[in-house]
Design a protein around this nucleic acid. Structure first.
Length: 432
RNA sequence: GGAGGGAUGACAGAGCGGCCGAAUGUACCGGUCUUGAAAACCGGCGUGGGCUUGCCCACCGUGGGUUCAAAUCCCACUCCCUCCGCCA
């Protein structure tokens, strides 16, 4: 949620910032007008309430003084003022509810550093990396045996059974088997171990209440993109960002505890309602995937370093795995609702010849903390924390890129050595 | 699923429907005393909101209700604890 006080103080600045991501300026004007109206009604209701309280107090005094006729007169007056107070309060509540509902739909103000743009075609590529790049090697050309899509390569090896997944849950719910399943487990173990030095490992619930979804900004805007369990007012989490952000909902943290860094492995569920039919083959886009998330609550001063650390860790993993990737600075038009700045990592899939998003590292400012009411105590008083998070990493597409990148001429897959401690001999051969 | 108990400020813990935003203790901050520290003593010490910055309003798990007036009475719900049942 954006800061209402800031909107009041500098509406034109807010309008311009939101305009950079295509938010309509007249909606900002409507918000300002609603806020003025709300405060007018609030004052009216509150002064009436103060009057009722005062009258009530005097009723008590009169009763004690045995002046019953005075008390009855005051009671009658109070009843009448109370009636007006009720009317004023109701009018105020209506406006407050409208204001809040609209405010929840307003996206975050983008960082001045985020590049301007309309959609994903305007994202700015910051750099590319590939194995041997530092030593002067050219961008890899990839051999013909690497130019086989993972769904074909995996079928030969018997490590991915998309038909079985579809049979029990519908299409785009992958089922991994044998070494394919084990590879996923190895990747998660590798990542969690790499983050152990600074991030506390959390294993949160896989579902969250509507209220929780509100905190991160997934509700009310993205309801169609999530799986719902209406009977229990629960939603399947689309990312561990949801539970981690709300882990300290309503709490006041000590400044000395910041940055509070967390990591979690969870399944992530996405309906992908808006993306029907696009890039849905194999593991390019799935409804459920495992992901290790990195997260931090921090002070405003710590946010930049926290963001950089998460990005460095995500990139570090990609390098350890020897995968080719590129780094994108998301433009204002492609930024998520809650984000001020987002850097995406896309891995190159040689078999499909596409760049696949495998990490999204975002700085939210105090947008989510304001919704979740997470604050910290500092010398300057109590204020909202900043939240930062990023994937480190999302495995389905990494799995696909690994199988393609490391596919040999004999159709076996020779995985990078970092996986050896987690996978045993890191070679995947066709099942007998 | 059944039975009982509970939820009050950072923590512990009081609170006859009116003088309760809330006693008391601890913790914390400032001061006196002290070579220094501890102890003792004195003072301060919740959060959020509105505006005429001095006042007003809200908040005692959540949401309703009764009343001139609710932390206090009534109803529903949530969570925690104990016991029973079931169970990976």
């Amino acid at each position: 949620m954006i800061d209402l006080a800031q909107l009041r103080r500098e509406p034109e600045f807010v309008k311009a910032a939101l305009g950079r991501r295509g938010f309509p300026p007249d909606e900002v004007d409507a918000l300002v007008a609603l806020d003025v109206e709300h405060r007018r009604l609030l004052q009216e209701a509150e002064s009436l309430r103060a009057e009722v309280k005062d009258l009530s107090r005097r009723v008590g005094e009169a009763r004690r003084a045995k002046a019953d006729d005075v008390a009855e007169g005051l009671t009658a007056t109070s009843r009448e003022v109370g009636e007006r107070e009720r009317v004023a309060s109701e009018a105020c509540d209506v406006v407050a509810a409208d204001l809040r509902a609209r405010l929840l739909m307003v996206p975050n103000l983008p960082s001045p550093d985020a590049p301007d743009g309309r959609d994903e075609t305007d994202n700015v590529e910051l750099r590319r990396w590939w194995l041997g790049m530092e030593e002067g090697a050219a961008f890899p050309s990839f051999a013909p045996h690497q130019r086989v899509a993972h769904w074909d390569a995996a079928r030969e090896l018997g490590i991915l059974d998309l038909e079985a997944g579809a049979r029990l849950a519908g299409s785009m719910f992958p089922l991994y088997r044998g070494d394919g399943a084990r590879l996923l487990r190895a990747l998660s173990a590798l990542a969690l171990d790499r983050h152990r030095d600074a991030y506390e490992e959390i294993r949160p619930p896989s579902v969250a209440l509507s209220e929780t979804m509100m905190s991160t900004g997934h509700l009310p805007k993205s309801a169609d993109d999530m799986y719902e369990v209406p009977r229990d007012d629960l939603w399947l989490i689309p990312t561990a960002e949801v539970p981690l952000t709300s882990m300290n909902r309503g709490e006041i943290l000590e400044e000395s505890a910041l940055p509070l860094r967390l990591t979690a492995l969870t399944a992530c569920f996405r309906r992908e309602a808006g993306a029907a039919g696009r890039d849905t083959r194999g593991l390019l886009r799935v409804h459920e995937f495992d992901k290790v998330e990195l997260f931090a609550y921090c002070t405003p001063d710590q946010a930049e370093a926290a963001h950089a650390d998460i990005l460095a860790r995500a990139e570090g993993l990609l390098r350890e795995l020897g995968l080719t990737y590129r780094v994108l600075d998301l433009c204002t038009g492609d930024l998520g609702t809650s984000s001020k700045r987002t850097i995406d990592l896309e891995v190159y899939s040689p078999g499909v010849d596409k760049w696949l998003e495998v990490s999204s590292v975002s700085w939210f400012g105090d947008f989510q903390a304001r919704r979740a009411n997470v604050r910290y105590r500092s010398a300057e008083g109590t204020q909202f924390v900043h939240t930062v998070n990023g994937s480190g990493l999302a495995w389905a597409r990494i799995w696909a890129a690994l199988v393609e990148t490391y596919r040999q001429a004999d159709a076996t897959v020779h995985l990078p050595r970092v996986l050896a401690p987690y996978f045993g001999e890191p070679v995947i051969r066709p099942r007998a």
